[in-house]
Design a protein around this nucleic acid. Sequence first.
DNA 1: GCCAACGTTGGC
DNA 2: GCCAACGTTGGC
Length: 145
Amino acid sequence: MAYWLFKSEPFKWSWEEQKAEGDKGAEWDGIRNYQARNFMRDMKVGDKGFFYHSNEGLEIVGIIEICAESHQDTTTDDERWNCVDVKAICDMPNPVSLKQVKAAENLSEMSLVKSMRLSVQPVRDEEWAIVCKMGGLDPDTLTPL
DNA sequence: GCCAACGTTGGC
DNA sequence: GCCAACGTTGGC
């Protein structure tokens, strides 16, 4: 299973809105960047991801799961653009801020730090575990520590 | 609101 | 295929 990180500006698509979609999930649409799209094409149902609030909040607020593989982005007819569907799994008991990620020595290679502008990005297994623990979650069971 | 980083576009 | 111009993202 692979891990990912999804950025969203809370005033466009917030964690609260994502949670309101429940288990049916929602399209992660509107991505118009090839790199981000390619990562979505690599995603498999069951992969997990962090939900990050950019611009405002600047923190990882929850965990999502891929619930539909890459398909046409319904917000455009342009066949170049695909997206996956994601559903909310749980809150981060303690949201992990960008500041904390930057301050953590063992997270200095994270895309969140290195590829600031990439809105969909891969997360390494070890990074997943570190961030989960920082947020108060067991990385395997995704239950509060 | 500013501005640096960086992806995309289009002329040559 | 290069590169300047331009637009967008996102932290501060």
